[in-house]
């Protein structure tokens, strides 16, 4: 499989699945302002997906479109991080997942703005503005709810304990990453870790939350070798119309 295609799917599938998860909140947020803010994030992420997967489809060269990739692949062909397919849980889990993702996504996109691949650099340049805003917002939310009431603090801490083992996957390289780094298309994932850890620790200390000691990281999402059971259910819903009416145009 072409490494660049794989890499583009990793970027696009992660934004697609996270955008989908966020969109599940629509109209059901804890406060009206969040009913406005959450769809904004989902919109940005789906918009980025359209750019990543359109380019992925071009690189693949099999005559597919971004929609084909989004709506017609099965679980084993998805390359998103395990973190983003985690169910929404309560608002604490949703915000913690968002924060752990944004804290990686932003520096990743910043690095990609200097990619040797012009198209990737362009997409990253567009996405980085949105990711900056997402990071600001999710880190503010983590601080506010961590340092809010006893209950909000407890919920945020257990969300962090639950999701932290899914944060590490983005920083472990494999052959696809090596090839992307060798051709200066993308940074080596490990090089982003120190800054990631530092910024997460900074926000968590302001949130009066404790980073779990264990460094264990689940793997299998971005390689596609072992997704969680959750992804299949998400795809069942997301892809249903396209699969039930394969000859229709929408």
């Amino acid at each position: 499989m072409d490494a660049k295609f794989e890499f583009l799917c990793r970027m696009g599938d992660s934004t697609l699945i996270l955008g989908h998860r966020i969109s599940e909140w629509c109209g059901k947020a804890p406060v009206l302002e969040e009913d406005i803010a959450l769809p904004n994030i989902a919109l940005d992420l789906i918009g980025q997906t359209q750019m990543w997967l359109a380019y992925a489809a071009e690189v693949e060269g099999a005559g597919h479109t971004a929609d084909d990739l989004a709506m017609r692949r099965d679980v084993w062909d998805f390359r998103n991080l395990l973190l983003v397919e985690r169910p929404n849980g309560d608002f604490a889990q949703t915000m913690t997942r968002q924060f752990l993702f944004d804290a990686w996504h932003l520096p990743m996109l910043q690095a990609l703005t200097t990619s040797s691949d012009k198209r990737i650099a362009e997409i990253a340049a567009k996405a980085v503005k949105e990711a900056t805003y997402h990071y600001e917002k999710s880190s503010e939310m983590v601080v506010a709810l961590g340092d809010g009431t006893e209950e909000s603090h407890a919920r945020m801490q257990s969300a962090l304990d639950l999701l932290w083992p899914f944060a590490g996957e983005a920083f472990v390289s494999d052959t696809v990453d090596h090839e992307m780094a060798a051709t200066s298309v993308a940074p080596t994932p490990e090089t982003l870790w120190d800054d990631y850890e530092a910024s997460v620790k900074d926000i968590l200390s302001r949130a009066t939350l404790t980073l779990p000691k264990a460094r264990f990281a689940h793997k299998g999402g971005k390689s596609g070798t072992m997704h969680s059971e959750h992804l299949g259910h998400l795809l069942t819903q997301m892809q249903w119309l396209q699969r039930a009416y394969p000859d229709a145009r929408w």
Binding site: A29, P30, V31, E34, D90, F91, V143, A144, L145, D147, G148, T149, E151, S152, H153, R155
Partner: peptide
Amino acid sequence: DEGKWVREGLMAHA
């Protein structure tokens, strides 16, 4: 109802 703790948390922090 499920959002109550969020609203309270945000207000307490503010």
